[in-house]
Amino acid sequence: MKTILIADDDRHILTLLKHVMTLEGYRVIEARDGQEAKEKLNEEAIDLAVIDIMMPRMDGLELCEYVRTEYDIPIILLTARDQLPDKEQGYLRGTDDYVTKPFEPEELVFRMKALFRRYSVVSSDKIRLNHLIIDRHNYEVTDGKSTILLPLKEFELLAQLAQYPGRLYSRDDLIRLVWGSDYKGDERTVDVHIKRLRQRFADYQEDFNIHTVRGIGYRLEVPEK
C-alpha cells in the first residue's frame, strides 16, 4: 500500500482527499502546515506528497524544495495560484506536477497514478526507456542489439534525467546533481551536453525525448507504447 502525504491547512480539502484516496487503496498521512509535513516526512515512509502552497510556518514552495533535496518521491503542488509565474516557481522548486483549485479529486488521483507510472521505470541499477536500458552499474546504454558507450558526464546527465521521466530540472539542478556544487563552470555546459545527447540518440525518439522548457531547463519524456 502506497502512503500519500497531504499537506494543506484547509480541513475540508484534507477530509475530502483522505476519503477519495482511501477508497483508491492509498494510506493517507495529513499535515496542516509545512512544518508538520516536514516532521511527517521524517517519521513516515512517504511515496508521494500533495502540497498546498499557502500554508503557515513553512509554505508549500519551501516544503517542495526541502522534499526535492532530501527525498526521491513525486510531488504535486495543489494551489489556487494559476498564473504562469506561480507555476514557474513551483517547477523551479522541484514539483513534478501542478494542480490548481478548484479541482476534481478524481483528476488529482489520475495525475498521481501517472507519476507513479513514471517513477516505476527505475530499478536499483537499470532504467528502462521503452527499448533502451540505461545500466548505471556498468555505465552503458543498450537497445537490445548494441551497446552505446557515452562520455561519463553525458551518461550521468542522461541517467539523472531518465531517473524521473517528466520531472523538470533547472540548469542549476543539473549542474549540482551531475557536476557537483563546487563546479566552477557555467550553465552552458548543460546545454552543450544536452545537444550532444540529442544528436547521439536522434534515432531513438520513439524511446525518449529531451524537451527544453524555455527559461527553466529540461525534462525527459518517455512516449507511451
Rank of each mutant, 00 (worst) to 15 (best):
D47Q: 01
R93G: 00
P56K: 12
Y66F: 12
L77P: 04
E39D: 12
V50D: 04
M55Q: 02
L92Q: 13
D82V: 08
T69K: 15
E65A: 14
L92C: 07
T79I: 04
K87F: 01
D47A: 03
Y71L: 11
D59A: 03
D86Y: 04
R57D: 06
K40R: 15
L61R: 08
M54C: 11
I53E: 02
Y98F: 10
T69D: 11
K101F: 09
Q83A: 13
L63T: 04
L63V: 00
L61H: 07
D72I: 03
P102M: 08
A80Q: 10
G90Y: 03
E39L: 13
Y66H: 13
T100M: 11
C64G: 06
T79H: 01
M55W: 04
E43G: 01
L48P: 00
P56E: 06
Y71V: 01
D52G: 01
R93V: 08
D82M: 08
D52T: 06
D72Q: 14
K101G: 05
L41G: 07
E65R: 15
E39W: 10
K40Y: 11
Q89I: 00
Y66A: 02
Y98C: 04
L41I: 09
K87L: 13
D97Q: 09
E70I: 11
G94R: 01
D86E: 12
M55K: 02
K87I: 14
L78A: 07
Y66I: 01
K87Q: 14
V99N: 03
V67R: 05
Q89Y: 08
Q83Y: 12
I46W: 07
G90R: 03
L48C: 06
T69S: 12
G90T: 01
L78D: 02
T100P: 08
R81N: 10
N42A: 15
G94A: 02
E70D: 06
L63M: 07
D52C: 01
V99D: 00
L48Y: 09
A80H: 09
R57C: 00
I73T: 01
I75V: 13
P85E: 02
I53V: 06
D86S: 05
V99C: 06
R68L: 06
Y66E: 08
L41K: 08
E62K: 14
L78C: 08
M54W: 12
Q83D: 13
R81V: 10
D72Y: 10
V67E: 01
D59M: 07
L78R: 07
E44L: 10
L84F: 14
T100L: 09
T79P: 02
I76M: 09
E39C: 07
V50H: 05
D97K: 11
E65G: 10
K87Y: 03
Q83T: 15
G90V: 01
P56D: 05
D72H: 14
P85L: 08
I73L: 08
A80T: 14
E43P: 00
A80I: 13
V67K: 06
N42Q: 15
T100Q: 08
I51V: 14
L92Y: 09
P56L: 07
T95P: 03
I46Q: 01
E43L: 15
R93W: 07
M55E: 02
A80N: 10
L92G: 00
P74E: 06
E43K: 15
G94D: 05
L78V: 09
G90W: 02
L41H: 09
T95Y: 10
